[in-house]
Write a protein that binds this DNA or RNA. Structure first.
Lengths: 245, 245
DNA sequence: GGACGGTATGCTGTAGGCAGTCGACGAAAA
DNA sequence: TTTTCGTCGACTGCCTACAGCATACCGTCC
């Protein structure tokens, strides 16, 4: 067998490159933010993060800058990095943008998704439903993301799908602590979405996706009504609080 | 007069912060790319750029990473940075995304732009038309960008406008050498767009913006037909060609 | 003649270090 | 008591230095 043949095979499990430290640090910090260990507005001191993660400041700096570009942290020249403070207003706008991007993705996907694509969608959907039935929330959320990502990928527009995935990541952060709602209803919508895509019905696919993401948005806003925003942790530079003792 | 009063005034000419080196480097490299001094596919050696710009490698590295996030360069771990090679296909996709974002922006702007906003739009439009009549292409292009940026800003959705401006920057690169077409026609479309926004007619504003950006896209693709793509400068790592002498 | 392995050389990725700068705190003056 | 100025501490921004790696070159073997 020629190597080129092997290379041609789909997803030959790309060699698990020992990612650069920077990438690892990015993921680590994202994880810290999403999990709430780093709180919104908190001052991220490079040297502390470096020590915490066991690396030098340089990879941390680079990671922070990339994270700034993706909206996770805010960078103030000369002052450092602060975990971004997501306002309700911004979350709403973000969700609106997501709706826009994903609706268009769904339309394009309906236009030109092949059999194979639909098959993969169905597989994911089945997995998601199974997860919900098993009450495995984490798995359900992850599968949900995968499904949406696949829809955008099937749109055939790489620029669009990249943008959408970036937006989706932020959405997940804002809305993860709130999300654990809408279990099965969401997956029923997914199913009819896939039906529309399979039928090549652009209008219907777009409509379903729009309503689907709007439902998410509504549920987010409703939830926010209940637990109001945290009391504005104004992002000031934190003075090193000298630990007594 | 209290300071807070002064601060309240619009655009009190923000103190010309001596930007960080990183930011200066970013702009410098963007300029080098747009102006064609750095060619698509070219290997960007950090130390060379550093020397060229008279700084150390660190700010250059950070700049390259940010530029990577914005799609100007591609970063291959362990291999370095290469100027992104824009394919026709990608440009098409990018223009499609721009159409999507700007159409929605126009719709929202029509929904909620105030008098003041419309006034500023008119002013920009006048400036653009004057530039075209004076055959000042650069100024016309710049004003065009400003106008589109203002429309997205008037949408009231910051996330949307940021995304749109990012996309617009890339579009400008791809399409600047091609753009110098469609002079006055474009500005007539702008005028009717502003009319629609002033009238608060969401549908019409969206429609006009969609057609407007689609015209741009069509003119881009047409132009590309004529001058075919550069012969695939495959992005290989450049071995330092030892200068004889 | 072509393929293979060894070697050399840039380049990247990372670390550590120094100067500049910003904010906070405390003392002095109003 | 409130405001202002000076000082101090800490952090960022940048530079320099080193180790590891990836590629290209080149001699050797098949």
């Amino acid at each position: 067998m020629l190597l080129s043949d092997q290379a041609g095979q789909a997803a030959a499990t790309k060699i698990p490159r020992p990612a650069t430290l920077r990438e690892s640090v990015i993921e680590a910090i994202q994880e810290l933010i999403v999990s709430g260990q780093l709180k919104p507005g908190q001052h991220l001191v490079e040297s502390e993060l470096a020590e915490l993660l066991g690396v030098s400041r340089q990879p941390v700096r680079e990671a922070l800058q990339q994270l700034s570009g993706e909206g996770w942290v805010d960078l103030f020249p000369g002052q450092g990095a602060f975990v971004h403070v997501p306002t309700v207003e911004e979350a709403d706008q973000l969700l609106a943008v997501r709706t826009l991007l994903e609706t268009e993705s769904a339309r394009l996907a309906a236009k030109q998704a092949g059999e194979d694509g639909v098959k993969r969608l169905r597989a994911l959907c089945a997995r998601g439903i199974a997860a919900v039935e098993a009450d495995d929330v984490d798995s359900a959320v992850a599968t949900n993301s995968e499904l949406h990502a696949l829809v955008t990928a099937l749109s055939g527009n790489k620029v669009l799908s990249e943008l959408a995935s970036q937006v989706a990541r932020r959405v997940r952060w804002y809305h993860t602590p709130v999300a654990r709602q809408r279990g099965m209803a969401s997956w029923e919508e997914h199913t009819s979405l896939i039906d529309a895509i399979e039928a090549g019905d652009e209008r219907r696919a777009a409509k379903i996706m729009r309503e689907h993401t709007e439902h998410t948005r509504a549920s987010y806003m409703a939830q926010r009504e209940q637990e109001p925003v945290q009391p504005a942790p104004k992002p000031v530079r934190r003075r090193r609080t000298r630990q007594p003792g």
